[in-house]
Simulated assay, not measured.
Amino acid sequence: PILGLMTDSGREVCPDFSAEFVVDSDIVAAFESNPVARAIFSTFHPLYRRVRIDTIQRNKANQEIFYSRLEKLIDASERGEMFGDWNDNGRLLDY
Rank of each mutant, 00 (worst) to 15 (best):
L70E: 00
P46Y: 05
P1Q: 05
T55K: 01
E71R: 10
N59L: 07
F31G: 04
L92V: 13
N59I: 02
P35L: 07
R49W: 06
E71L: 09
A30L: 08
Q63Y: 11
D88K: 00
F83P: 01
I65C: 06
Y48M: 09
V22T: 11
F66P: 01
G84Y: 11
S68K: 06
Q63S: 13
R11A: 05
R69K: 15
G4E: 11
N62Y: 09
A29F: 11
I27M: 05
C14V: 04
S33K: 13
N89R: 12
L70N: 06
R69G: 12
E32D: 15
F44S: 10
V28P: 10
W86S: 12
A76T: 06
E64A: 11
T55E: 14
K60S: 06
D94C: 10
P46E: 05
P15K: 07
A30P: 11
P46G: 11
R58L: 09
Q57S: 02
Q63N: 08
F66Q: 03
V51H: 02
N89M: 07
V23L: 03
R91D: 08
S9I: 14
K60L: 02
N87M: 00
L3W: 02
R50E: 06
R58A: 08
D24C: 00
P15L: 05
A37H: 06
A61C: 09
P35M: 04
F17H: 13
A39I: 03
G10P: 08
